[in-house]
């Protein structure tokens, strides 16, 4: 599928206006802009409670130039399914308000990792199972940043968060991340993918594909959080690429059950390159925590090997 040309994207206007209150260097702000400029479908957005919601909608202001709804924290998916069902029912009866753009309407639910991996998981699972025609986009910055950097089930092993602090005897989060992308894929929906705004052509192509497929799609998108990660705002795009080049955040897609890596780094960089730019991992570089760094590298290596194998296997199967 051809990617949207940059010129075309640039000509689409700003679906999310500047002047919102997201932090400098926030990955989520880049994600929502790329997500809505990826296509020219008329799009409705349902947004879980979180940084993006709070920072873009402080009454009487709004950054959204598209129809947008915030309901609760855990129900962005259920909310968009209501809107999508309403669209189908109202379209049948000629009750949908007239619009200039005659393309079919599309529905996006947006949530952070807290609102998606944790409190919103049931709502997401129900919506995926019911087969609504919508795309769920999770911006995963690996903690509850809006409430003050508490651990979530997406926080990486070893991360220093306010509820998994690095202390004298415990060195940050002791548990691994939940593999939400695999959980979404287990619903056997038409399209599931990971993405990073550091690889924006890959991301926008996946958004387009997700919107084009008939039925639910899920995108798990890597979101840098300078506040929660204690990284420099100017490093955000570097981190959005470094996460992919170190294979901490591999880019892949699963279309109709077929798995495919969409990016392979020429040189796989060591995870420490990615981690060193973030204060949340600084304790791991202290003497005595070498084992944890080794463990993290080994885990990333093992997961990457598995993905490579799966990619190879499915390529072979599909070429037969």
């Amino acid at each position: 599928m051809p990617s949207a040309a940059l010129l075309e994207i640039a000509s689409r206007g700003e679906p999310v206006a500047g002047g919102h209150r997201l932090c400098s260097g926030c990955g989520a702000g880049v994600i929502i802009r790329q997500m809505l400029t990826a296509t020219d479908y008329p799009t409705v957005v349902s947004n879980a409670t979180g940084c993006v919601e709070v920072c873009t909608s402080v009454y009487p202001f709004t950054a959204w130039n598209v129809p947008w709804i915030h309901n609760g924290f855990e129900n962005a998916a259920a909310t968009i399914t209501g809107a999508e069902a309403a669209y189908r029912a109202m379209e049948r009866r000629g009750d949908v308000p007239k619009r200039k753009n005659k393309k079919p309407m599309k529905f996006i639910a947006l949530g952070g990792d807290g609102g998606t991996y944790d409190i919103g998981l049931q709502s997401l699972s129900g919506a995926l199972e019911r087969g609504h025609d919508f795309v769920y986009i999770c911006y995963d910055n690996g903690a509850y940043m809006n409430t003050g950097i508490q651990r979530s089930s997406a926080s990486p092993f070893g991360a220093n968060t306010t509820t998994s602090p690095a202390g004298v005897v415990i060195q940050g989060k002791q548990e691994e991340r939940k593999n939400l992308t695999a959980i979404a894929a287990a619903h056997d929906i038409p399209f599931v993918a990971t993405a990073s705004p550091g690889y924006y052509m890959d991301f926008t192509r996946k958004v387009k594909k997700a919107l084009d497929v008939n039925g639910p799609a899920f995108l798990n998108v890597f979101a840098v959080c300078p506040l929660g990660w204690r990284s420099e705002p100017e490093d955000s795009q570097i981190l959005a690429r470094s996460s992919v080049e170190t294979c901490v955040w591999p880019l892949y897609e699963i279309e109709d059950g077929r798995f495919r890596l969409t990016f392979r780094p020429n040189v796989k960089r060591p995870v420490t390159e990615y981690m060193q730019l973030q204060g949340r991992f600084s304790h791991l570089f202290k003497t005595g925590n070498e084992d944890m760094l080794t463990h993290i590298q080994e885990r990333v290596d093992a997961e990457w090997e598995q993905l490579l194998k799966r990619d190879r296997r499915e390529r072979e199967e599909n070429s037969e």
């Binding site: 209501g82 069902a85 669209y87």
Partner: peptide
């Protein structure tokens, strides 16, 4: 939640 989404859609 779905009722709210549908209601906001004007249904």
């Amino acid at each position: 939640s779905a009722c709210v989404g549908a209601g906001a859609a004007g249904a």
